[in-house]
């Protein structure tokens, strides 16, 4: 068995000011994945990324990157990761090309080689013409792409992007997505954090949802979307049913003799459920909508202001 691209066990972080940002995170990202870490602002996404990239000290837990331990094999961990941070972190008074080439230098790549690689990635990201311009003259989207080129120049096996499309307009967002998919097809594992559901949905095969420093969901995108398509009702019964009926569109489960749970596909008539139970002679005493953690999460997220909130609403 090959080592996972990323394996996190029991990761905790309490910042100096007492904020408990991570409360025990377990996460595995398989090699070759395109993985989304989804969660509202302040959930702890950047803290996780910060720890993996050694910009934040962890309080407890284990991190392994391709089997290399963050505490014991830091150089190997660093060599295998490329990071595109949430906030711009290059010298705005340095020329675009220099930024990428210097980064290669820090990884021990000689200058001539570094320029060749810089050219390849800057060309692919449409920035080669700008190589002599000061980074501060770039637009927001170009700055983001500059950081992607910088993250790839040492050809890491795992590329991590923290909110890569924040401040990038829709056109550019799509071409960035295409680029990332192309990079992923080449065999590079990708993790991106976002609070923008559409982005995760379009790109990622696997997803973890984080909220208040805890992983609340870790599944495939398919399963997640399927979950979003159903609504769960809790039915209190007058007496225990003889048997539980089957229906192609309604999944029924007994929680205890007097309680049933029903998953109903959205768009399905709730009457169907009543008919089904009626036929079996099952009498419903009361019924309520099951509050779904995921559902709650998304509702709360859709109440976020602005662009991202709208994005989530459109997708859900």
């Amino acid at each position: 068995m090959t080592d996972a691209a990323l394996e996190i066990r029991g990761l905790r972080k309490t910042y100096g000011n007492g904020v408990e940002a991570l409360k025990g995170i377990d996460l595995t990202v398989e090699e070759g994945s395109f993985f989304a870490l989804l969660g509202p602002n302040g959930a702890g996404k950047s803290t996780i990324i910060g720890i993996i990239t050694s910009l934040v000290n962890k309080s407890a837990g284990q991190v392994r990157v391709f089997g290399f331990d963050l505490d014991r094999e830091l150089q190997e961990v660093k060599r295998n990761i490329g990071i595109v941070p949430q906030e711009f972190n290059f010298n705005t008074f340095e020329p675009v090309g220099e930024i990428v080439v210097n980064q290669a230098g820090y990884y021990g790549i000689p200058r001539r080689d570094a320029w060749r690689r810089a050219q390849r990635y800057l060309e692919e990201l449409g920035l080669w013409e700008k190589r002599k311009e000061m980074a501060r003259t770039l637009s927001g989207g170009m700055k983001r792409r500059l950081m992607i080129a910088r993250a790839l120049v040492h050809e890491p096996r795992l590329l991590i992007l923290d909110e890569p499309t924040a401040g990038v307009d829709i056109e550019l967002r799509r071409s960035m997505w295409e680029f990332l998919q192309h990079i992923n097809c080449d065999g590079r594992s990708i993790i991106l954090t976002t609070h923008y559901l559409e982005e995760a949905e379009k790109l990622c095969r696997n997803i973890a949802i984080i909220d208040h420093g805890r992983i609340v969901e870790n599944t495939t995108m398919k399963a997640l979307l399927a979950q979003l398509d159903t609504e769960t009702f809790v039915l209190d019964l007058r007496e225990a049913p003889q048997r539980i009926p089957n229906h192609p569109d309604i999944a029924l489960r007994a929680l205890d003799p007097l309680t049933l749970e029903a998953d109903i596909h959205r768009g399905q008539n709730i009457n169907t459920l009543f008919h089904l139970l009626d036929k079996e002679g099952i009498q419903i005493h009361s019924m309520r909508n099951k509050s779904n953690r995921l559902e709650e999460l998304f509702i709360r997220m859709t109440q976020l202001d602005g662009e991202h909130g709208k994005g989530l609403r459109a997708a859900s």
């Binding site: 990239t53 660093k78 060599r79 972190n89 290059f90 820090y106």
Partner: peptide
């Protein structure tokens, strides 16, 4: 300007 991070993430 946070570009010290360029060095800190590198080996």
């Amino acid at each position: 300007q946070r570009h010290i991070e360029e060095l800190m993430v590198s080996p």
